[in-house]
Write a protein that binds this DNA or RNA. Sequence first.
DNA 1: ATTTATATATATCGGTTTGATATATATAAA
DNA 2: TTTATATATATCAAACCGATATATATAAAT
Lengths: 181, 181
Amino acid sequence: MNIQTLCLSILYERDATGYEIRQLSTKGEYSYFVEASFGSIYPALKKLEKEGFVTSRYETAKGSPTKKIFSITDKGRSKFYNSLFDEIGEDIFRSEFLLFARFVSLLPASLVKQRINEKIERLKKKREHLLSILNSKLSKADIWVLNFGIEMIEVEINYLKTHMQQLLDIAIKENIATKAT
Amino acid sequence: MNIQTLCLSILYERDATGYEIRQLSTKGEYSYFVEASFGSIYPALKKLEKEGFVTSRYETAKGSPTKKIFSITDKGRSKFYNSLFDEIGEDIFRSEFLLFARFVSLLPASLVKQRINEKIERLKKKREHLLSILNSKLSKADIWVLNFGIEMIEVEINYLKTHMQQLLDIAIKENIATKAT
DNA sequence: ATTTATATATATCGGTTTGATATATATAAA
DNA sequence: TTTATATATATCAAACCGATATATATAAAT
């Protein structure tokens, strides 16, 4: 999924600034399966405008810098609609945590335990965040997508909780200072 | 997780060519949570060699082009080991399928059904592949990581199977030619 | 009252990574 | 004998990330 397509998918349903597209893709309802930086969003919007897929207008509001608001054109609309009939690319999953997990036999159990707990905490936060978004007014399809994400995160949390001991058993056991004299 | 670290993680346990690193990261036991292209692996190895973290030697074998085999140095070994104590970066998940799912209300149910089935088939293949790797001689940690991946894929398959009808109900129902005259 | 932190907002730039392509050898299948 | 597949190295343009710069306004803290 390239950034141009992501921008069009958001502009398909509402006008937005580059900043808002960034917020939606990293903190909003798309944050579970999308990620885009300013360094890719602004150039993508510029190129889309040059090619006639979007237009822009400036709006000055009290309390914030001037906004550059983008709107999708009919040309952009049909470009995106047609792309929905293309073959769907593979999902991308990359995990530094799992790379770490491969090497726990070299590491102290205390570190491994800490990293697993940090991982679980992050997943819980993400879960809470997705649940909070579920309360806003969303389309049925968006609710489906969000529920999918929440389910996956819950399974991951449970798996880590129930299998973390296995990983700790592989790690290096530290000597526990025995109290007895 | 940058490609240099990925290369070191593989070379930490065995010598390898750039080609083999590519195979391991896209088809082998790391394929569930890693992805790297030749265009990033070869430059990464070149840079690692220049900086003294790996060394290389050429080997000519019958039946294949000359191999450039990389070995990790003590310097590379401690660089990688120390990196295991760094904070772990967030997992990355991106899904063109979920972007597609957001727009099923614009699309014919037949297309949606086809795409979901294609998705399930791909997941089943990946699951079978990971199961087949599980039969090779692996460390306990690698088995843990693989089982984690297999579990996640199985949950995803089941979720898609049990919830696909919800998505089809949102899609555009095509007229079914009634047989009766 | 004043400093600090946070949120909103646009934009660029260096470095990394992808995806495609070029080149070459050998084997297996059609 | 042609074609496809696997092995193997390597480069390049385009895409993308992460960091940074700039600016305004509000909220919080001291």
